Computed example of a mutant assay.
Amino acid sequence: MARANKSDIRLDTPKGLRQSAFPTRGPGSDRFGRFTESIARGMGTPWFLVGLTLFAVGWMLWNTLAPVEWRFDSIALGFIALTLVLSLQASYAAPMILLAQNRQDDRDRVQIEQDRQRAERNLADTEYLAREVVALRLAIKDMASKDFIRAELRSLIEHLDERDQVALAEAGEAAAPSAASAASAASAASALTERPTGV
C-alpha cells in the first residue's frame, strides 16, 4: 500500500498538494486552517492593535494604581507577567500567520492553475476564430462581386441584342424574295385577267 501511494505521487504535483508522512489534509485540518486564518485576519486589523494597546495599558494601570493586595503583577519587576503574556501571544501569532499564509499560497497556486487553463482555452478559441476569419476571407474573395455580376449581365444583354438583330436581318432577307415572287405572281394573275376572252 505504501509503495502504491508513493507511486501515485507525481513530480509535477505542487509541493503543497503532496501527501506527507504526517497527514495535514482532511476535514479537521481544514477546520483548524480556517480557524487560524480567521485569527490571523483578526490580528491584521487596526482593532486588534487598539485592543492590545488598551489591554496592556489597563494591565499596567491596574498593577500600578490598584491596592497592593489586588495587584497580580509587580511594577518593581517590570511587569513580568505582562511580558510573559505578550511573548506567549507573539509566539502563537507567528505560526498562525504562517499557516494562514500557506493556505493563501495554496489558493493562489490553484488560482494560477485555473488562470493558466483559462488562458490556454482563450488562446485555443482565438486561434480557432482566426482560422475561421481567414477561411471566410478566402471564401469572400472567391465570391462574385456586384460589379462583376453587373458586367456579366451587360455583356449577356449585348450578346442577346446582337443575336436578335442578326435574326431580324435574316428574316428581312428571307421576306424580300418571297415578296418579289408574290409580286410576280400577282402581275401574272392580273395579266391573265386582262386578256380578252375572245382571242
Score class of each variant (00 low, 15 high):
120 E>N: 05
132 E>W: 00
64 T>D: 06
94 A>K: 05
137 R>G: 05
74 S>K: 10
102 N>L: 13
129 L>T: 07
11 L>M: 13
152 E>L: 09
152 E>K: 14
89 Q>R: 05
84 L>N: 00
130 A>L: 04
12 D>V: 11
162 E>K: 07
21 A>Q: 09
167 A>Y: 02
109 R>L: 09
129 L>I: 07
138 L>G: 05
63 N>F: 07
177 P>K: 05
178 S>N: 11
119 A>V: 01
178 S>G: 04
165 Q>S: 04
165 Q>W: 03
82 L>I: 00
115 D>L: 11
70 W>F: 11
134 V>G: 00
48 F>D: 02
119 A>S: 04
20 S>W: 06
84 L>T: 00
34 R>K: 15
145 S>A: 04
73 D>M: 04
188 A>N: 12
175 A>Q: 12
84 L>C: 03
50 V>T: 09
40 A>F: 09
173 E>T: 09
61 L>G: 01
102 N>A: 12
19 Q>V: 07
57 V>R: 03
95 P>E: 00
89 Q>C: 12
179 A>Q: 12
134 V>C: 03
190 S>M: 08
78 G>Y: 00
1 M>R: 09
110 V>L: 14
113 E>W: 04
18 R>G: 04
199 V>H: 05
34 R>E: 13
178 S>F: 10
48 F>S: 05
187 S>G: 10
107 R>W: 03
147 D>I: 12
172 G>M: 14
116 R>C: 00
10 R>T: 13
128 Y>S: 14
107 R>G: 06
129 L>A: 12
55 F>K: 00
123 L>N: 05
130 A>F: 02
71 R>I: 08
165 Q>K: 11
87 S>Y: 00
192 L>Q: 14
45 T>H: 03
64 T>K: 10
198 G>W: 12
159 H>F: 02
86 L>I: 06
54 L>H: 02
111 Q>G: 08
132 E>G: 07
95 P>I: 03
71 R>Y: 11
149 I>K: 13
16 G>S: 14
39 I>Y: 08
114 Q>S: 07
180 A>Y: 10
186 A>M: 10
28 G>A: 15
41 R>A: 14
103 R>D: 13
117 Q>A: 09
157 I>Y: 01
89 Q>D: 05
120 E>Y: 01
145 S>N: 09
118 R>S: 03
69 E>S: 13
95 P>M: 05
96 M>R: 04
49 L>Y: 08
47 W>K: 11
88 L>D: 02
89 Q>L: 15
9 I>V: 15
21 A>Y: 08
160 L>M: 02
93 A>Q: 02
179 A>K: 12
29 S>K: 13
197 T>Q: 11
149 I>H: 05
14 P>H: 07
102 N>W: 08
106 D>M: 14
196 P>M: 04
28 G>L: 15
182 A>E: 10
62 W>H: 13
199 V>G: 11
168 L>M: 11
140 I>C: 09
156 L>P: 01
77 L>R: 13
85 V>M: 02
